[in-house]
Nucleic acid binder design. Structure first.
Length: 779
DNA sequence: CAGTGAGCGAGCTTCCGCTTGACTT
């Protein structure tokens, strides 16, 4: 007999707790929310007190009917969704949708999945907190009203298919503002001076001592004159100070910090981290991965203690409890940690192993003692200058938690320990072996990575652990933002060296501005941000979420009514929407750059049907204007007349090869060479289609032909039917007609016959048909 | 898969937060 039905949110959680409960319990999962606002008419009856209209989405119908069956069989229902606003709402929706009654329903909560916590929860049931449910309802309705009123404004005034919302629009705003800071940034240069001294020790052995001048020079002249003065200078140790310092471990992982560290240490994207973590969670290897809590359960603390003591010794142990710094945290779960800390490694693919080990180390380190450091600073006076050289060294007296874990930072500066300094004393005279002044440039603020954007959003209290990854996908899918690498540019810098009594000057080259997997706002993202900032500044305000969150809390506490809160917000907001629809112009980001010297016509840039473009001539004139698409990295707001005119020089005829015209141009996929109606990609970094010569174009054509020849493993023919077996990026594949088919892994591509290939093709054809139909459904 | 950019109109898009599939390239 199973009289008791427990409903939780996640099936993995259901499996685990079923084990803790007796035979008299069956545990099922709701797979998150089971009802949502209808999409018709906002799903909200605005004229009737904002009454929500809830429906069960198609993909949840099966789950709900399954749960209903289980309800019928049970005597008592236990609603065990998370103890936060969303969890309480899930419990209430279950109560409503499953038509439960109060006598047979209990609401229970637990924060950690242990037998003790669950038994304890079963012993202290309560009823559903209606106020908290109403706070969630207000949150849901507000987001719906904002999203479904603003997005159509963008469809009419900017471009179809765009979207706006409380979270995504602010995320884009952050990126747009940072990009503009970078565009406006003016780099300043100064001269950093370093010196290498020779310090003899007691045994007469010389040690090198590296030091940096306390002053940076603004001009080359000052730097040169300083170095010239060093020629005859005497260098004396003026001071030596040694100070102890400490370094403490950071808190165990939350969703956001896991995403940041996995990005920095393992190079994972935010969504990659989440899907690997999901697999670890489902396999029972880690605790829940969508959490804002830094708390560890008592049992985890105990086993961490045991492991640290036995592996590293008692002096490495320091039990700690961490408190969240995030104001918006709801802490329905534990921090992310290994389920069984005694497993330092796990079975799995390399991604799973690496992420697991990262989580293990971070968790263990959080319960370890501080590292003890000792920082030594030596000040070296110069007889010919008022400035000093400063040498710093840091040594580790006791490694503590650093034995297992070193947290990384976003700063790209060198922060390595300087090591031990040679034993020099005050008044020692030092021999200088070299002095060097190097020109350094100030850096613009860094562009956001996916993970650093998540960090910023979390700081602002915008978005939740379950939405960070989807939000980042949304803003990329809408075309507001792209994630990409951009090559750096060479930059010249000056260097002045004193060595062997000789001063020499050099100009060297370094690469600067290389970007890897960074988020870049597109013109459409900038345009939409400007539009929303102009007409809906309160929604775009970085404090908007914090402000409404406070009101949601007040609803939960019973201080204000949910519908009154919505009513304070909606009418003025709706009025602005109406006014914007009626009065604002269509926003194209148009800018007049000047006149085309060849024709005397106006040159514009604006957003066209296919994206940002330049235009020569007016749309309403008799002669049709000419158009050219902007290139990657060019912005409507920064492109110059000259750069815009250059765009019209393409496609360019380079000459003839094999009696056919060779043309250079830029297309959707970057710069290309066209010859005999075939396309050949130019290398983005080194080939410029504006200047590329015929010789180089022929080289590109021949290289591609050679690659294509090497690509063919086999050609097979039967009658008029011809197919090729080719070498591809992901292994061998069959090219037949206009389609490609993958050769299965267990098959040797060299030995395939025509019939074998046709079988593979047929097999995959049926598969891909299925796929097409499901895809269409989704659309 | 790389040329497009007139104008009209039908029908469509869209939010945030809970969850996991079912997909491959």
């Amino acid at each position: 007999m199973k009289d008791n039905l427990v409903i939780v949110e996640s099936p993995a959680k259901a499996r685990t707790i079923e084990k803790f409960l007796g035979n008299n319990f069956v545990v099922k999962s709701s797979y998150g929310h089971i009802r949502d606002l209808s999409k018709k008419n906002y799903g909200v009856d605005i004229d009737n007190g904002y009454k929500p209209h809830y429906v069960i989405p198609d993909d949840k119908k099966k789950i709900v009917s399954e749960l209903k069956k289980n309800v019928k069989k049970a005597v008592t229902i236990w609603l065990a969704s998370d103890e936060d606003r969303e969890g309480e709402a899930i419990a209430w929706h279950l109560y409503e949708a499953l038509e439960l009654n109060e006598e047979s329903t209990n609401r229970i909560v637990f924060h950690e999945i242990t037998k003790e916590a669950i038994t304890n929860a079963i012993n202290t049931p309560r009823s559903i907190d209606k106020k908290l449910v109403e706070a969630q309802q207000a949150r849901r309705i507000l987001d719906r009203l904002v999203g479904f009123e603003l997005s159509p404004v963008l469809w009419k005034k900017v471009k179809q298919g765009l979207s706006a919302g409380r979270v995504q629009s602010v995320a884009v705003r952050l990126l747009v503002e940072r990009e503009r800071e970078i565009i406006a940034f003016k780099s300043k240069s100064s001269f950093k001076v370093t010196a290498v001294f020779e310090a003899p020790d007691e045994e007469g052995k010389t040690n090198q001592l590296k030091a940096e001048l306390s002053k940076r020079f603004e001009t080359q002249k000052e730097a040169v004159s300083f170095i010239e003065n060093c020629k005859k200078a005497q260098f004396t140790v003026k001071d030596r100070v040694t100070k102890p310092s400490k370094k403490s471990p950071t808190a165990p992982f939350t969703t956001s910090t896991l995403q940041q560290e996995a990005s920095r240490k393992l190079g994972f994207s935010v969504s990659q981290t989440m899907s690997v973590a999901q697999r670890l969670y489902e396999a029972g290897k880690i605790t829940y991965m969508r959490t804002d809590s830094v708390n560890l359960s008592e049992s985890a603390l105990k086993s961490a203690k045991k492991i640290i003591e036995s592996q590293f010794g008692e002096k490495y142990l320091k039990s700690r409890k961490y408190k969240t710094k995030t104001k918006s945290a709801q802490e329905a779960h534990e921090a992310i940690r290994p389920t069984y800390l005694e497993n330092q490694t796990i079975e799995g693919n390399s991604h799973e192993k690496r992420l697991y080990e990262l989580i293990w180390k971070r968790t263990i380190a959080s319960q370890m003692s501080e590292a003890q450091l000792e920082k030594t600073t030596v000040t070296i006076g110069i007889s010919t200058s008022e400035h000093n050289f400063i040498a710093t060294g840091e040594i580790l007296k006791f490694d503590g938690f650093l034995k297992v874990y070193i947290e990384s930072t976003d700063d790209e500066q060198e922060t390595a320990f300087g090591g031990l300094l040679p034993p020099v004393d005050v008044n020692d005279k030092l021999e200088v072996s070299s002095v060097q002044a190097t020109e350094k440039f100030t850096m613009h603020p860094p562009r956001y990575t996916e993970a650093s954007l998540v960090k910023k959003l979390e700081e602002l209290g915008i978005g939740r652990p379950s939405t960070y990854a989807p939000t980042i996908s949304t803003i990329q899918n809408r075309g507001y933002v792209v994630k990409e690498d951009r090559p750096g540019r060479p930059r010249k810098y000056k260097s002045i060296t004193l060595e062997g009594g000789q001063v020499s000057q050099e100009v060297k080259t370094e690469t600067t501005g290389t970007e890897k997997a960074k988020l870049f706002p597109n013109d459409i993202g900038m345009l939409v941000t400007d539009f929303l900032m102009k007409h809906f500044p309160e929604i775009m305000d970085y404090n908007f979420t914090a402000k409404v969150e406070k009101e949601f809390d007040e609803i939960a506490e019973g201080k204000i009514k949910w519908d009154e809160m919505i009513h304070k917000f909606y009418p003025p907001f709706h009025e602005k929407v109406q006014k914007t629809l009626e009065t604002s112009e269509r926003s194209k980001g148009e800018r007049l750059l000047g006149k085309d010297p060849a024709s005397g016509k106006n040159v514009y840039v604006k957003i066209g049907k296919y994206g940002p473009m330049a235009q020569i001539g007016d749309s309403d004139s008799e002669e049709k204007p000419r158009f050219a698409a902007l290139r990657k990295g060019q912005h409507l707001e920064t492109i110059t007349l000259r750069e815009a005119l250059d765009l019209f020089k393409l496609p360019r005829k380079l000459g003839k090869y094999e009696e056919k015209e060779v043309v250079a141009g830029v297309g959707r996929f970057g710069p290309y060479i066209m010859h005999d109606s075939k396309f050949y990609s130019l290398r983005k970094e080194s080939d410029d289609p504006l200047t590329v010569k015929l010789d180089r174009a022929i080289e590109v054509i021949e290289e591609k032909r050679k690659r294509d020849r090497e690509k063919i493993i086999k050609t097979l023919e039967e009658g008029d039917n011809k197919l090729y077996i080719l070498k591809g990026r992901w292994g061998p594949y069959i090219s037949y007609g206009n389609n490609n088919y993958k050769v299965p892994k267990d098959v040797n591509a060299d030995e395939l016959s025509f019939e074998d290939c046709m079988k593979i093709i047929k097999n995959q054809e049926t598969k891909s048909n299925k796929r097409k139909t499901t895809k269409r459904k989704k659309k």
